[in-house]
């Protein structure tokens, strides 16, 4: 029995603990389900990274233009991340020496240092790739 639509539920954190560990064991041994999981996670990732469309002003009060939906709030995080890539704003500890802080540089410097550690692993590299 393959996992089928449980794969999406697994990805979305919609499986209970028992079903989740069953899914993990199955995934670890079934290349078919792994590639299907890969396909749905790729689709999901692309939908989540669609840019946020700005509604006309009459639909949203101006003070709420930055509202983040509390539960998953994915849309706006993506927008924020995109904004961060386009303009890295920020200043050094010495306010007169204005050095922009960019999230990717911060993550890269962390991972560079972490890679000296014998505990370094690929998950750390993922942090940079998927900043």
């Amino acid at each position: 029995m393959h996992l089928g639509d449980s794969l999406s539920a697994f990805l979305d954190g919609e499986l209970d603990t028992g079903a989740r560990s069953d899914a993990e064991s199955h995934l670890a041994s079934c290349p078919l389900c792994r590639s299907e999981l890969e396909a749905v996670s790729e689709s999901s990732r692309m939908l989540k990274s669609l840019p946020v469309a700005e509604p006309p002003a009459h639909l949203v009060a101006p003070s709420n233009v930055r509202h983040l939906r509390p539960r998953r709030g994915r849309i706006l995080v993506g927008a924020a991340a995109a904004a961060a890539l386009i303009v890295g704003v920020g200043f050094g500890v010495n306010a007169d020496r204005a050095v922009p802080l960019q999230l990717d540089e911060v993550v890269e410097q962390h991972v560079a240092r972490a890679s000296v550690d014998p505990g370094f692993n690929v998950l750390q590299v993922q942090a940079v790739v998927d900043r």
Binding site: A84, V89, F91, D104
Partner: peptide
């Protein structure tokens, strides 16, 4: 596990992180 703490100016927006939830 490991993590880094970056201490920066209060004016920084954390490279856009201040817009996160």
């Amino acid at each position: 596990f490991r993590f880094s703490v970056f201490e920066v100016s209060r004016k920084s927006d954390g490279g856009g992180l201040s817009d996160a939830p």
